[in-house]
């Protein structure tokens, strides 16, 4: 039972890591922007808009990400649209996380007390000003714990995109492992790298949260 790990494998894994981080950053940003829109649609939209947004959220939260990924990558290919694995990954994961983030944003916005908006309006603020200066600053603070969770989740789920050929951290790990028959060593190291990333993100976000914290605005801690 000897363990072998060659140092030359590390830079290769490093290249995969870069792709993993890129994919995570891209899909979480798209998800945030689109998710906020969906949340607004679910909160304030009229019948059709509300219904469409709700159907979207139900679908993307109720079906596996893996299936969504293949639908985007191979489904669109069937219609003549060929996407790179990275792009398919960004789109599929972006659409997926948008549905989850929509619900987190909606919950956070609803958690801001109604009187806050009334007070803002009573000063003569427009609806937009009320949202921008009173509702959003509070809602964003309230959503941070759930959002951090979602970021970590997305980072971990990027590991499935290797199945459509993306040479991310997981994909490169698989390649090296199967070429050298060193499965335990490689996957253990890969696991440690993901773990480290997760810890880094968690602590970074905890720091952010402590900086923007306001006494009296219900944060989970």
């Amino acid at each position: 039972m000897e363990l072998i790990f060659k140092w030359e494998w590390l830079p290769q894994l490093g290249r995969g890591l870069v792709l993993t981080v890129e994919l995570t950053a891209a899909c979480i940003s798209i998800g945030a922007a689109f998710g906020l829109l969906l949340a607004v649609a679910r909160l304030y939209g009229r019948n059709v808009v509300y219904w469409l947004a709700s159907a979207y959220v139900q679908f993307f939260r109720g079906t596996p990400l893996l299936v969504q990924l293949f639908m985007v990558h191979f489904g669109l290919a069937g219609w003549g649209i060929r996407l790179s694995p990275l792009l398919s990954g960004i789109i599929a994961m972006g659409l997926n996380t948008a549905a989850y983030q929509a619900e987190y944003f909606r919950g956070a916005i609803q958690a801001v007390k109604r009187g806050q908006a009334l007070a803002a309006l009573s000063l003569g603020m427009t609806r937009w000003q009320t949202i921008r200066y009173v509702i959003l600053p509070q809602a964003l603070r309230l959503v941070l714990p759930a959002w951090s969770n979602e970021l970590v989740y997305m980072l971990k789920y990027t590991s499935i995109v290797y199945l459509i050929g993306l040479p991310d951290l997981m994909g490169i790990g698989r390649t090296i492992a199967s070429r050298n028959f060193r499965f335990f060593e490689i996957y253990a190291v890969v696991a440690l790298i993901y773990l480290t990333l997760v810890l880094l993100i968690t602590f970074a976000l905890r720091y952010v949260e402590s900086r923007i914290r306001v006494p009296g605005l219900g944060t989970a801690r």
Partner: peptide, 29 residues
Amino acid sequence: YRIRAQIGFVFQDFNLFTHLTALDNVRLG
């Protein structure tokens, strides 16, 4: 909006902006 800016309103539940200091609350408008 212009009318509301000319009418002050004091609520039963105060409705101070939770995320702002007292000074910021008064300054925001």
